[in-house]
Amino acid sequence: MRYFVAVARHLHFGRAAADLHIAQPVLSRQIRALETELNVTLFRRDKRSTELTGAGRQLLSDAVPLLARADALRRRVARAARGPDRFVVGFMPGLIVTDAVRAIRERHPGLTVDLLRTGWNDQTDVVHDGRVDVSYVRLPVDKRGLTLRPLLGEPRVAMLPAAHRLAGKETIEIAELADDQLLQDPAAVPEWPVRSPAAPPTYAVEEKLEHVAAGRGVVVLPLSTARFYTRPDVVWARIADIPRNRVSLAWDSTRRDPLIAEFAALAEEFPAA
């Protein structure tokens, strides 16, 4: 199944084989074996291109979550083998989770609490695949398979190059950014006044701010993130007419671990921003 997903994403057997570090003939045999087992054709191939069939598109949509669940199963088994003495907390940039982490450590002196920094694209993936026990997430997220505990809301700000026409203003309205390029996933800013013809590349916060400083566009961030990444060539202005960013604690809805419930209560008690 992993071989199939690699070919489906590359739509090129040679590049998929290189990515998988196997020989192309081996990959081709594995795909033929899968097609034989399922009694379908998954790819249409000619000398110029490789395309997914209808059956291939359906398998791809099912295969990705299937592989994620398989990864999560392996991680859960490994976690069970380690015993109940390790707890992993995911957190988004700008969120300060120290107080809740310190409190859970004080309550459970033998517990090892680890932290994992996440980003917009993987803040819920780390829950589904078992890398973390709980994750501080910034909404909106896909809520399927998750339990969410609302924690807080905070203003959102526009990150602008220091020479921007709006630099120096304390607050602005979202419509004032209509002529600017949005340098982040549009799903993160559904209120954006103009949609780009194609989704812009996704960068880590540090990379986004490098592009902002270079005058290539703007990004919208929660206030705590903006304060965390202060730099002299980028300024911010609070956006007055869009909703606050909502932060929740997320965990796998199938888990009934008392430690998760205890940490969720602590997360409510100690704000993260």
Rank of each mutant, 00 (worst) to 15 (best):
residue 3 Y to G: 15
residue 4 F to R: 01
residue 5 V to W: 05
residue 8 A to M: 11
residue 9 R to L: 06
residue 10 H to W: 12
residue 11 L to D: 02
residue 11 L to G: 05
residue 15 R to H: 14
residue 20 L to R: 09
residue 20 L to Y: 08
residue 26 V to T: 13
residue 28 S to F: 10
residue 28 S to T: 09
residue 29 R to K: 09
residue 29 R to Q: 08
residue 30 Q to S: 10
residue 30 Q to C: 08
residue 32 R to Y: 11
residue 33 A to W: 00
residue 36 T to L: 06
residue 37 E to K: 10
residue 37 E to A: 05
residue 42 L to E: 04
residue 48 R to H: 14
residue 48 R to M: 13
residue 55 A to Q: 05
residue 57 R to S: 11
residue 63 A to S: 15
residue 65 P to H: 12
residue 67 L to Q: 10
residue 71 D to F: 09
residue 72 A to G: 14
residue 80 A to F: 15
residue 82 R to N: 13
residue 83 G to S: 14
residue 84 P to L: 06
residue 85 D to N: 07
residue 86 R to H: 11
residue 86 R to D: 06
residue 91 F to I: 00
residue 92 M to A: 08
residue 97 V to W: 04
residue 98 T to V: 10
residue 99 D to P: 04
residue 99 D to F: 01
residue 102 R to P: 00
residue 102 R to Y: 09
residue 107 R to P: 01
residue 109 P to R: 14
residue 111 L to A: 04
residue 113 V to K: 03
residue 116 L to N: 04
residue 118 T to C: 02
residue 121 N to V: 14
residue 123 Q to N: 15
residue 124 T to E: 15
residue 125 D to A: 14
residue 126 V to K: 06
residue 127 V to W: 08
residue 127 V to I: 13
residue 130 G to R: 00
residue 138 R to H: 01
residue 139 L to R: 12
residue 141 V to C: 01
residue 142 D to Q: 03
residue 144 R to N: 03
residue 145 G to T: 09
residue 145 G to K: 04
residue 146 L to A: 02
residue 147 T to V: 07
residue 151 L to V: 02
residue 157 V to A: 06
residue 158 A to F: 01
residue 159 M to K: 09
residue 161 P to H: 04
residue 162 A to N: 03
residue 163 A to D: 13
residue 163 A to S: 11
residue 164 H to Q: 11
residue 166 L to Q: 12
residue 179 D to A: 10
residue 186 P to L: 12
residue 187 A to Q: 08
residue 192 W to Q: 00
residue 194 V to L: 14
residue 194 V to E: 10
residue 194 V to Y: 11
residue 196 S to D: 05
residue 197 P to K: 04
residue 200 P to R: 07
residue 204 A to E: 15
residue 206 E to G: 10
residue 207 E to D: 12
residue 209 L to R: 03
residue 213 A to G: 13
residue 219 V to R: 00
residue 224 S to G: 01
residue 225 T to P: 05
residue 226 A to C: 14
residue 229 Y to Q: 07
residue 229 Y to R: 06
residue 233 D to V: 14
residue 234 V to N: 02
residue 236 W to G: 08
residue 236 W to M: 12
residue 237 A to R: 01
residue 240 A to I: 06
residue 242 I to D: 07
residue 243 P to Q: 12
residue 244 R to K: 15
residue 246 R to Y: 03
residue 247 V to S: 05
residue 249 L to H: 07
residue 253 S to E: 10
residue 254 T to G: 08
residue 264 A to I: 06
residue 268 E to L: 14
residue 268 E to Q: 15
residue 269 E to H: 14
residue 273 A to Y: 00
